[in-house]
């Protein structure tokens, strides 16, 4: 069972602020969906390999060649806050 405290913690992990009055509602919905997911336990998956990817692909390599790329102005053109051509983030420490 997911509690309101769990929802708060998951929200913290996901960097999603959950308002106090929403915690209960999310806990209920998450429990309902996770209850449905529980049916996967019925399936015997002994010796079954997981499928991360449907195609049997290995690493794809390319030559290390310089190609065209965005200019600095284009790259930061959508940023809400910039300084001296850089993205400006909130202070970390």
């Amino acid at each position: 069972m997911i509690t309101t405290k769990d929802v708060e913690h998951i929200g913290w992990l996901a960097r999603l602020k959950i308002e106090e009055e929403q915690l209960e509602g999310y806990a209920e919905q998450l429990n309902s969906v996770l209850g449905y997911f529980g049916q996967l336990d019925e399936v015997n998956t002994k010796d079954v390999e997981p499928t991360y990817h449907v195609l049997e692909m290995n690493n794809v390599f390319r030559d290390d060649e310089v190609t065209d790329c965005l200019s600095q102005d284009e790259a930061i053109g959508n940023a809400p806050r910039t300084q001296d051509g850089y993205f400006k983030a909130p202070r970390i420490i």
Binding site: G11, A14, Y26, L30, F37, L40, D41, V43, V48, E49
Partner: peptide, 26 residues
Amino acid sequence: ILLGTYALSAGYMDKYYLKALKVRTL
């Protein structure tokens, strides 16, 4: 996002994510 974060979090990854990937194989 919340459900996915939960399914990938420590202690639940095998139960949900890895299990789902095995069912995907079947």
